[in-house]
Nucleic acid binder design. Structure first.
Lengths: 182, 182
DNA sequence: TTTCAATGGTTACAAATGAAACCAGTTTGG
DNA sequence: CCAAACTGGTTTCATTTGTAACCATTGAAA
């Protein structure tokens, strides 16, 4: 059996190290795990809780489904995260007038304070991560990811309410701190 | 309160959509989930099981820890995945002669067959995913990811045997089908 | 109206996960 | 030789997750 010397693609072998799904997952996992330490140590938040906080902090009042779409979380994760943040009195629910199934979620003062404390830490984390790359490399991931996002978009998992890549949750947001309109 | 019009960075707000950890995670999740359908429908494999299969298929005989390092999985995941694949008779364990703690894992004929069947599907999946991007975009993710990988490397989670980014597991591999030497 | 499908959200239950304890076996260093 | 300290690997237990079933409400259709 001859050893192939031109690295990595005997057609009948899959080189995991270069396999996109695997690379993405591994990287995401490492980054996410590292970042989680920040909100975990700091406030004992789980990832769904942090995302809920981040979503509401960014957009102001939202419904649970909107939150799920915006932050790509499963229904039940959102539900549980919201329940917990409510228990901590970091957010409040206000039933919709027209449609009594809907609840509008908003951060309380305490919740907002926590959010405001987290923002600079998050930004610093990202900055530090990117700081080690050259300008071109930064540009590369940014545009590369963007390209994948718009395309992987046709994948998404349609089953259940797990529709990633925000469809139209914008509609459900009111009074967001910065409703950037471009 | 004036509405900022230049999209997205009031310094006190974190724009999730542009936040790297979040983008990575969302993308990885979608891609991974979509890809998982292939091995899930096809063979009823879980992700750890698929990775185990892929690892052994690629490198030939390996120990459990080497597998864990190569595929960035937690000890226990590997252990359980291996147990299941063994139950299916897709792999066999052979105790090391020198060190009786160690077991060398190898795919059986059946396991190898399953692997061989999966490889083209995996490659096709990746190809299809990338096919929608322009050449530059493809180059961008490839190099962007590579850059992040080499750097995020200093993160990794040192706790437990979850050390990502392969240290020296090469040593534990024998008779890999293609021991690409560059 | 009444009925039936869809939608926002929660809950129950089963499966997947991770931390930590654990059981060999191995090495180190008296 | 013997006792730590360590390493490969498994197991136990508590937590997290996802699926599916569920309640309440709404909208559309008959």
């Amino acid at each position: 059996m001859v050893i192939k010397s031109e690295a990595s693609d005997a057609p009948e072998i899959l080189n995991l190290e270069n396999f996109l799904p695997y690379r993405l997952h591994r990287l995401a996992e490492a980054v996410s795990r590292e970042f989680s330490r920040i909100y975990k140590d700091r406030h004992g938040l789980t990832r769904p809780e942090w995302r809920t906080l981040a979503g509401l902090g960014q957009r102001g009042t939202m419904t649970a489904t909107a939150l799920g779409e915006q932050s790509a979380m499963h229904k039940t994760k959102v539900s549980r995260a919201v329940a917990e943040l409510e228990r901590r009195r970091w957010l409040t629910r206000k039933p919709d007038e027209k449609d009594r199934r809907i609840e509008h979620l908003t951060l309380t003062g305490t919740g907002l304070a926590a959010y405001r404390e987290m923002v600079p830490l998050a930004k610093a984390f990202e900055r530090d991560l990117l700081a080690r790359l050259s300008a071109e490399e930064r540009a590369a991931i940014t545009s590369g990811l963007a390209a994948l996002e718009t395309n992987a978009w046709s994948l998404a998992s349609p089953r259940s309410s797990q529709s990633l890549w925000t469809t139209e949750f914008e509609r459900d947001c009111v009074g967001a701190p910065t409703t950037a309109k471009a």
